[in-house]
């Protein structure tokens, strides 16, 4: 393909502009975090001085000390968050992949009805379900347990819906028929054939569920009643008791609590993209 020098220069300019604008957009989206990280190094008085400036101050150690000095055991709460999120994501992937797969691939009685009910239940704001939810948890004797925080949300219709959409577009039914003819059991088909093809959506789902569990606040608020069981979100929120919040420490805590999500996102998205470009799908 012959392209004149002019076209080539335009291409370069275009690419540069593209990368440049995306870079700018990225800065806009991650600005609040940079801001929070910068604020973690400042003392509260410095945070309240007028004007916007980007300097980094030297109160990081003080803020850390203050973070450790609350009535919450910060690192234990971090661990709680990690534990709940890990279990939640694991079981979410298991349950939701199975359910989404079932909706996408099989025809069975009541399929549309059940799917419709699932979808419909997503449409009602959960503002009011807090009290009945608490009642159920109390009834099951699960108050103040971590199980109550992740288990109920490992099969939410939203994730099932996402998996279904993905499987419909990517998993070819003939592949499955072939395997069935070979005598493979349904679960074998799911496990060996469909699941590897579903890796990108599972990666996406993992990230979304990770964020959901990590940031969940209302449920832990109602269910957990001892300081040792609290999750890190609660710690940070509780420190924000206006008007006396130790903002530097809060910002530091916020920055620390974002890190696991970033790490997980980096890992998961690599998984996603890697499997996509390995050319698994053949027309």
């Amino acid at each position: 393909m012959n392209s004149s020098p002019v076209v080539r220069i335009w291409e370069k300019v275009g690419t540069a502009a593209l990368y440049g604008s995306f870079g700018l957009a990225s800065l806009i989206t991650i600005f609040p975090f940079l801001w929070a990280a910068i604020l973690s190094t400042r003392s509260r008085e410095e945070i309240f001085t007028p004007g916007i400036s980007l300097y980094i101050s030297n109160h990081l150690a003080d803020n850390y000390a203050e973070l450790m000095n609350t009535s919450f055991p910060f690192w234990l709460n971090m661990f709680n968050s990690v534990k709940i999120t890990a279990l939640g994501v694991l079981f979410s992937l298991a349950f939701m992949s199975m359910a989404g797969y079932a909706f996408a691939v099989y025809r069975f009685k009541g399929k549309n009805l059940i799917f419709g009910i699932f979808l419909g239940s997503m449409m009602v704001p959960p503002v009011l379900s807090l009290i009945p939810f608490a009642l159920i948890i109390q009834f099951l004797g699960l108050m103040d347990s971590h199980l109550a925080i992740w288990l109920p949300f490992t099969a939410v219709p939203f994730g099932i819906f996402l998996v279904r959409q993905y499987v419909v577009t990517t998993v070819p039914l003939d592949l499955m028929e072939a395997a069935r003819m070979d005598g493979a059991g349904e679960f074998r088909i799911f496990w060996n054939i469909a699941l590897p093809l579903m890796r990108p959506v599972l990666g996406t789902l993992a990230i979304i569920q990770f964020v959901f569990f990590w940031n969940s606040f209302i449920i832990p608020l109602i269910v957990l009643t001892s300081a040792e069981k609290q999750v890190v979100v609660q710690v940070l929120r509780s420190m924000q008791g206006l008007p006396n919040s130790p903002w530097g420490a809060v910002m530091l805590g916020t920055t620390i609590s974002i890190l696991p999500i970033l790490i997980f996102y980096a890992l998961a998205s690599k998984q996603m993209i890697a499997s996509l470009t390995s050319g698994a799908v053949k027309g």
Partner: peptide, 9 residues
């Protein structure tokens, strides 16, 4: 033993 939350929560 204290169990703190923000005012609204």
């Amino acid at each position: 033993k204290p169990l703190m939350n923000d005012w609204i929560a």
